[in-house]
Structure formats: C-alpha cells, structure tokens
C-alpha cells in the first residue's frame, strides 16, 4: 500500500509539471529582484552571511524544482499518449506495456521487497566501484596536476587507456575475475577512474597563474598552497569529474549486471527478458533512469553549495 502511495506521489509530482514550471518563471523574476536588491544595498550595507547562505539554499531548491518542472513536460505528454495508444489497443501489450501496467508491476515488486533488494545490491556495487575508482582518479589527477614529472611519466599511458572504451575490456575482466562481485566492481571502477582523473588534472592546471603569484608574495608553504589555493580553485573541475564518474559508474553497473549476475537491477531486467515479462524490463529501465537523475540532481545541489563564490554566467 505504501508502495502504491509513493508511486502515485511520484506520478503526481510529474504531472505537477504545469505549475512547477511557472514556479521556475517566478524563480527567474525573484533572481532579478535579488540582483536589484544587492545593487541597492551595495554602498549601504553588505548582505548578512545568514541571509546569503539561506538564499543559496533557496536558489538550489528553486532550481531543482524548475529543473524537474520544466523538464517534466515531454515525459508527461509522452506517457499520456503512450497510455492512450495502449488502452485503445493500438500497440500490443506484449510489445509495449502501458504505463499503468508498468506501474502495477512496479508496486508488485516493491511490495514483495524484490525491488529494494536488487536496488540495494546494485547501488552497493556502483558505490564501491565508484569509491575505489574515484579515489584513485582523484589521487592520480592531483599528482599529475601538481608535478610535471609525474605527468610525463603517467599521463601518456593513462590517455592511451582512456581511449579504449572501458566496456571493451569487460570480457577480459570477467575472464580474470570470474562472475563474482569482484569483476563487477572492477568494471565499474575502471570506468569511473578516467573522468575524475582528467577533470582533476585539468582543474589544477587551470588555476589562475595570477593567484599563484599572490601565494608566492604571501609566502604560502607548499601545504598552504595546496589547501588554500590549488584545491579550492580546482574544485569546479573536481566536482564535474565526480559527476561524470558517477554517470559512467552507473553505465558500467548495467553492463556488468547484464553480462551475468544473480542479483541487482540488471539481473532483474535480464530475467524478465527471458520470461518475456516486458513490464519488469521497463521497471528496471525506469529505476536506472530515476536513480541516475537523482544522483545527478544531488550533485548539482552540491555544486551550488560549494561553488557559490563563482562569478560566472549562469544562463
């Protein structure tokens, strides 16, 4: 019952697209008044820190809303037409199940607890693979970014490996590590290593040389240089790398689970395919999409939280 409710809630959320979009428009207007406010008060008094923090959170929330609201128009219309085509018998249910029957399959899986089990397994795999690959990517990226000698030794090899689609080596990984958890984690980590490595490296190399001069004039120690200058300045690159790495980890997960596994969302899809259970295939795909989108949105919030100081064009 609870599952049904949450699905309905999710559905209702999407159908709210109409007014959340107008909310987005409102957010734009609010933004302009905010700019005007700060212009007015610029020579009188500064924005108190509390207010600016709060408004940063409010902006993040608003943008999440408008992000979902405006972005929901196309899916909502598609789902409506799709259901119409299914209900009128225009498309066979075996070929393309209707949204409602997919929703039913979704709630069934949720009630039996299968869905949460498989989702948990999948997220655990993606999480571990991403964590190991990400830490390695960050570490190597920082080292090659900081030291040109390391760059000369390491970067050419990494660049060659990067150009091999990481899914092409998946069969090799299975050959080496078997069908167990190990091979899945390795497939995911090889994918998530590169985006973080490259963006950390580029982030460090893009630090403004003028600020380096400042750190010399202020007599920063090497540690201070890293902590006070390089890492904060490279943070936009590092966060972008994290986001891309997570996306790749998610893709690696699907491949790893489709190749062969006894649990996870990929397994759910594969098994449903064998039993011609098209609804469940759709449920699996939708789960991948929703979780992927949620993670991506979370990262946008993190970016806004940590990169609010950036004075760049925001569209």
């Amino acid at each position: 019952m609870a599952g049904q409710l949450s699905w309905i809630n999710g559905y209702a959320h999407e159908t709210k697209g109409g007014w959340t979009m107008s909310d987005g428009v409102e957010a734009i207007f609010k933004n302009t008044t905010r700019v005007r406010d700060s212009l007015d008060s610029s020579d009188a008094a500064p924005l108190p820190i509390k207010k600016s923090k709060k408004s940063a959170a409010a902006i993040a929330w608003k943008s999440l809303l408008s992000d979902w609201g405006t972005g929901a128009i196309i899916p909502v219309v598609t789902i409506f037409l799709w259901q119409l085509a299914g209900s009128t018998g225009l498309i066979s249910a075996q070929f393309l199940p209707t949204p409602l029957s997919i929703a039913r399959a979704f709630t069934d899986l949720l009630i039996t607890g299968e869905l949460t089990h498989h989702l948990g397994v999948s997220m655990g795999r993606a999480g571990i693979g991403f964590l190991i690959g990400g830490v390695l990517g960050l570490l190597f990226g920082v080292l090659t970014g900081l030291f040109r000698s390391v760059e000369y030794v390491l970067d050419p090899s990494v660049q060659v490996l990067r150009l091999v689609p990481h899914l092409a080596i998946a069969p090799l990984i299975i050959l080496w590590f078997g069908f167990g958890e190990m091979s899945k984690v390795v497939i995911i980590l090889t994918g998530s290593f590169f985006p973080l490595y490259i963006n950390t490296f580029m982030g460090i190399r893009n630090v403004d040389n003028k600020l380096f001069e400042v750190s010399r004039v202020l007599g920063f120690s090497p540690y201070q240089k890293l902590r006070r200058l390089i890492l904060p300045a490279a943070l936009p690159g590092i966060l972008l790398g994290l986001r891309l790495s997570l996306a790749v980890a998610w893709i690696g997960l699907v491949v790893a689970e489709l190749i062969g596994s006894q649990s996870g969302i990929g397994f759910l899809i594969n098994e449903a395919k064998q039993n011609s259970n098209t609804e469940i295939v759709f449920v699996g795909i939708i789960i991948f999409a929703i979780v992927g989108k949620l993670i991506d949105s979370l990262f946008r919030i993190i970016e806004r939280r940590f990169l609010f100081w950036r004075d760049s064009y925001e569209g």
């Binding site: 003028k210 600020l211 001069e213 004039v217 006070r228 904060p232 943070l235 100081w309 004075d311």
Partner: peptide, 14 residues
Amino acid sequence: KGFIFQEHRLFPWL
C-alpha cells in the same frame, strides 16, 4: 615585501 597588483587578485572563494 607586500605587493598590490593592478587587479585585486583576491581568492574568490574566501
């Protein structure tokens, strides 16, 4: 030797 540049060169994140 304190140095003031043509641009303020403040750390934008501080």
